[in-house]
Amino acid sequence: MIKVEGLTKRYDRTVAVNNISFEVEKGQIVGFLGPNGAGKTTTMRILTCFLPPSEGTASVAGFDVLQSPMDVKRHIGYLPENPPVYPEMEVEEYLTFVGRLKGIPKADLALRVREASEKCAVAEVSKKLISKLSKGYRQRVGLAQAIIHNPDVLILDEPTAGLDPKQIHETRDLIRSLAGAHTIILSTHILPEVEQTCDHVVIISKGRMVAKDSVQNLTSRLRGQEAVAVEVTGGDNAAIQQRLEQVAGVSRVVARDTRDGRHSYEVESLPGCNVRGDVARAVVESGWNLHELRAVALSLEDVFLELTGAGQAAEGEKQ
């Protein structure tokens, strides 16, 4: 449904997007993941024909963004980072205006407006001025605007940015419910969002694509490898660390901090080894007190930090 090949976008001297290629199948939800300023928005703007690419090609629903932008625009619903709403308009009036812009025939217009407002749960505020709406409602009006012409492809730029936790939850559910009928690309810098809503993920950092895989594959890269948080009292910091390092299957022990005589560590194990029992035994047998022993979940976040190189930078700061 979406095909991007060797996409590059340059501004003067800076390269915002550097040689990105990926494909999205019909009905998939793909998450664009990357730190702020990674080139997510630029890529989306190219796909929506707002910006032309410097190099490479992008096509949506079989239409090239440079050769037939009108056809691409007809097949895309786009929600920019700030919902493009007119505060002086009423919700229904705004959606009708967008419907006309998108070329919905007059006869279907009222029906489509109603459908979109019901899907995005803005029907009850349809007569309200957009300027009077909360951020959450505005975001939903923005979504309603994006789906009003029933586009094949939905492009959502940080759809949950600036919302409160409840609204974030609702928006994610809404996006999930739109999948299937629409192919969706959404960008975010929030990792759990990708884990919860997307099938596939494209990770971008500094304009380059660093990974492209299904969410499952990416997280299972780390499966089998485990980290354990350990808190011990009654011993000497160096001695405890040394003892922990001797436990079979432990690959690395990182001392976290010491407070009121409590020493905490993060024990990383080799893939396939469950070291929790051995760690507990080692601590107790040495005559120390085991205060806490807890598995630390390795999530997409770790993959992400590893891939974008931010992990090393963060650890460097700690040391």
Binding site: R74, P80, P84, L101
Partner: peptide, 13 residues
């Protein structure tokens, strides 16, 4: 300023 220009420029007109 408000970003609505993105709506206009990404609509099929």
């Amino acid at each position: 300023r408000s970003g609505t220009i993105e709506l206009l420029l990404t609509s099929p007109i």
